[in-house]
Nucleic acid binder design. Structure first.
Lengths: 308, 308
DNA sequence: TCCTGAATTTCAGCAAATCTGAAATTTACT
DNA sequence: AGTAAATTTCAGATTTGCTGAAATTCAGGA
């Protein structure tokens, strides 16, 4: 049966015009090549070379050279693609994250690892957590960075980082006049502007506050506008504000340490991800780990470098 | 190193979803396939299947399947092309012959061997002998059927058949009133219409006649027109007239048996021809041999069957 | 949860293919 | 014709690949 290595040997010999040089190139002895070509000619039952010296091809030889050359090249290309994909130097990764991570962690990941990505094509999108989970389950993205859903079946999750909620208000708001954590009772005395992220806080006190809230805003721009207009205060995870251009607003942490948003690395549980996706995941986790070594200090540094 | 047979094994297993069926298809044992795939996975340093049962692929597995499938198909196509070319069931042969052979022998060849030509693409052209030799030496055709040149260097020749010259004249011409061979002396008493074929006769008497000839015509139609108008007689090889629609003309052989046109099978001496060309050559020679078994009778038969 | 049968993997030994190095042969060139 | 280089041949060594049996793993039912 015809083998690629036979064709490769023939191409090398036919092109170099003699066995010894070809043997050098291929890293075998001339005698091995001689036997290989003999076998090929026996298989075709026709000579490929005009003379014993391999410097002139028969008509069949010329035809085989053309075909074999094309074939060997095609094969090598395929092998490169397969090996490249396996070693994550080639491929495509589609990732979707919540905006705050898209604006903080992700840029860090790329600035650290961009050189290791080779030919990998990374597609980043930002969307809200439930959309991310939906896109994941429909196989529209490979990796998601989002909060977990109540009962997301078929998704594998891994805690990436947890993000402390705090109170945001205008600098001349009464709550901005003091430092330190804010208690639920303290917060209850001010008008709350609810938002989709704060609605996720599970503490009972938070639920009560939301039940009484009169205003709900969805996007950061409008929330921040209301804060500056001193209409009220809001609750947001720390990263959500650091990712945006905050301008003149004050952040005070919540006294209730359970009020956190937990951001997970999500992927489909049943199907495997490509090596490139796995590699990107590793880069993200390592980046997060590094940033958390110096705890908040490192996170702050990340934020600063991210807001020129 | 990655081998085609490994890719083929992987494709078969990935498509059938289990080892045993694939082993059946490939004609090996499941254990052989198991080891092959293990080796492939080790080479890529990544799993190709989700579970030990081979019915679900990893992301890498899906990618490799796609690539390997394409590759195996490409390889098989190449091998078919090479083997087909070698066995002369595939290829192209360009052949040029003098018109008389194009009109007699060649149709016979095809009617006998057409079924053996498979996918071979045969191109037939007719032209005069010197053009044929020229085209051959420029590698524009693979096989030529023509008379030899004076000093055609680099051409291999082989006598195919020799064709007796004779006198052609109108039925009411004086020479048509008798049977049997015509002597040079007899012929000298009539006006000769010279032509490019008769000019090639080497006999001294023929040269004298040509020196005195007043008319020279190149193509058969005009020659025959002149014969019918009783302007004179001409000398032509027997096949040249049998190949054409002769109509009402009389042929009498020459007494001088040396006046023959020798038609050769020509090809370039240095470069080899393709297996398909070689096969066609064989077919032509065999056809000629068969026709000559019954000597002239057979040739006559050929002519008859060729002029419906 | 355990059992059962099927599928797969492992292992050892065997067979086939391929390689090497030396010697013999052929070829091209002087 | 002689010589040097290239190629082929040959035998032995090595590697690779395959088989068949046994062990293991797995899926599905009791």
């Amino acid at each position: 049966m015809l083998k690629i290595e036979t064709l490769r040997a023939y191409v090398t010999v036919a092109r170099s015009g003699n066995l010894s040089d070809a043997a050098e190139v291929l890293g075998r002895t001339p005698s091995a090549l001689s036997m290989m070509l003999k076998q090929l000619e026996a298989h075709l039952d026709e000579p490929l070379f005009e003379t014993d010296r391999k410097n002139r091809l028969t008509a069949l030889g010329a035809f085989v050279l053309e075909q074999a050359e094309r074939e060997v090249q095609h094969f090598d290309t395929t092998v490169r693609a397969i090996e490249g994909y396996a070693r994550a130097v080639y491929g495509r990764v589609r990732i979707a994250t919540v905006p705050s991570v898209a604006g903080t962690i992700i840029p860090q990941v790329f600035s650290r690892y961009i050189n290791d990505f080779g030919e990998v094509d990374v597609e980043v999108r930002d969307m809200d957590s439930s959309s991310i989970r939906h896109e994941l389950s429909r196989n529209r993205i490979d990796i998601g960075i989002a909060t977990k859903g109540k009962h997301d079946a078929g998704l594998h999750s891994e805690l990436l980082l947890s993000d402390e909620f705090g109170v945001i208000c205008a600098p001349d708001h009464p709550l901005a006049q003091q430092d330190g954590p804010v208690s639920w009772a303290e917060l209850a005395e001010h008008r709350l502007i609810a938002n989709s992220l704060s609605a996720g806080i599970e503490a009972a006190a938070a639920r009560d506050l939301h039940a009484q809230a009169l205003l709900t805003a969805q996007n950061l721009t409008s929330i921040f506008g209301m804060l500056r207009a001193k209409i009220g205060v809001t609750l947001l995870p720390e990263m959500a504000i650091s990712a945006a251009a905050v301008g003149e607003l004050v952040f005070r942490p919540l006294a209730d340490a359970t009020a956190r948003r937990e951001i997970h690395l999500l992927r489909k549980a049943d199907s495997s991800i490509s090596p490139a996706a796995r590699f990107l995941e590793e880069c993200i986790k390592e980046t997060v780990a590094t940033l958390q070594v110096g705890s908040e200090a490192a996170l702050d540094a990340a934020r600063l470098s991210d807001a020129p």
